[in-house]
Every structure is written in structure tokens, then in C-alpha cells.
């Protein structure tokens, strides 16, 4: 529904909204290239795992060849500040890694409408477990950097080809969606490094 191809040579500012989690990284990989990754930092009573991990987030995007900017959003003004920021960047397209949460999609559609941009959601409607396997199959190595209590034993562990099935089974056994779309876990998805 949202993924379409931009003709080569057309000047666009394609912005990926990313927290360096496995889904946003895979969304970037799916669309091929983005001009800029934007990391929005939200205010929480406690620092979110993604704030703790901001250094790795910047590093990962730069290694993917994607410039990255970080923007802190004030509590209560998140949407308006997101819109203003994307306008200032003269964004033409937004890439996001939502999969099934309708509220998230509607929020992104509002942002796209307000900014006059096209929304690209390349992962939307994918089968959750299949998507997890595809991500791992594409050499994304998500490391769990924050989890709900039920997944505590997986904290600090990298999901790889050799443990992804066990992980997915474990998630299902404790009643958690294996993709963690509702924030059941957060990942850092550093890409494989080319040895220098």
C-alpha cells in the first residue's frame, strides 16, 4: 500500500525515522537508500534504552552511509515538533518501520499529510514471525538492550540465525509478539562491520 518507487534522478529528501531498532533498519534496507535518518528522542520519566544507546545509533547509520540527526522532542509537543522539523528539512518522503499497530500508522499518516510528504511503510502488514526471520536472514543482528520483565533473560543477547527460532518460541510461550512491536523489547541493530 505504501511502498512505491521514486524515479532515479528526481530530487527528493527521503527521511527515515529510525531508532536503530531492527525494524527501522530493515525498513531502510528495504527501500534501498535514504538521504537522512532522523532519530527523535522522546521524554520519559526514565531514559529509554534508545537514549542510552544513542552513540551506537549514530554509529550504525553512519556505517550504513546514512547521515543522521538527533532531535529531542518536548513532552506534549511531540507531533507538532516532528512536523515542524520534517518541514524544515524539506522532507519529501518519510520511511518508517511500522508493522501492525494502526495507531502508529495513523500518527505517521497525519504527520505525512501535515508535512505534504509521502509515507513509505515497507514492512506494513507483514507476518510478524516471518518478518523477524527475514530481518535476521538479512544479517541484521538485533541486540536486546531493554526488555519487559518476561524477557529479562534475553537482555544483552544478540538474536542470530542460531537462536532466532528459540527466541520466537520463547516470546510466544510468554504471550509476547516475537517482533516486540508494542515495545516489549528494544534492540540495537548494529550492522556487520567491515574489518579495517
Amino acid at each position: 500500500m505504501h511502498n512505491s518507487v521514486i524515479p532515479l534522478g528526481e530530487a527528493v529528501i527521503r527521511v527515515a525515522l529510525s531508532s536503530e531498532d531492527k525494524d527501522s533498519i530493515y525498513a531502510i534496507m528495504r527501500v534501498g537508500e535514504v538521504d537522512l535518518a532522523v532519530v527523535f528522542v522522546y521524554e520519559f520519566p526514565r531514559p529509554s534504552p534508545h537514549v542510552l544507546n544513542i552513540g551506537k545509533t549514530i554509529e550504525t547509520h553512519l556505517k550504513m552511509g546514512t547521515p543522521v540527526v538527533v532531535k529531542a522532542l518536548k513532552k506534549g509537543f511531540e507531533k507538532i515538533e516532528t512536523i515542524e522539523f520534517l518541514r524544515r528539512l524539506r522532507t519529501k518522503e518519510i520511511v518508517a518501520g511500522d508493522v501492525y499497530i494502526e495507531d502508529h500508522l495513523r500518527y505517521m499518516e497525519d504527520v505525512a499529510r501535515e508535512t505534504g510528504t509521502r509515507l513509505i511503510e515497507p514492512l506494513w502488514s507483514e507476518d510478524l514471525e516471518e518478518l523477524l526471520y527475514k530481518e535476521i536472514g538479512n544479517n541484521i543482528k538485533p541486540l536486546l538492550i531493554g526488555t519487559v520483565n518476561k524477557l529479562e533473560k534475553w537482555l544483552g543477547i544478540e538474536i542470530r540465525r542460531d537462536n532466532v527460532v528459540t527466541f520466537a518460541k520463547y516470546c510466544k510461550s510468554v504471550g509476547i509478539d516475537p517482533l516486540g512491536e508494542r515495545g516489549e523489547y528494544h534492540t540495537s541493530s548494529h550492522k556487520p562491520v567491515t574489518q579495517r
Binding site: K56, I58, E59, K63, L143, P192, V193
Partner: peptide
């Protein structure tokens, strides 16, 4: 251990 080896 690239995750630490490449950290900022």
C-alpha cells in the same frame, strides 16, 4: 565483539 569494538 564488534558491538563493543566499534562503539563511539
Amino acid at each position: 565483539y564488534e558491538f563493543v569494538g566499534e562503539r563511539i
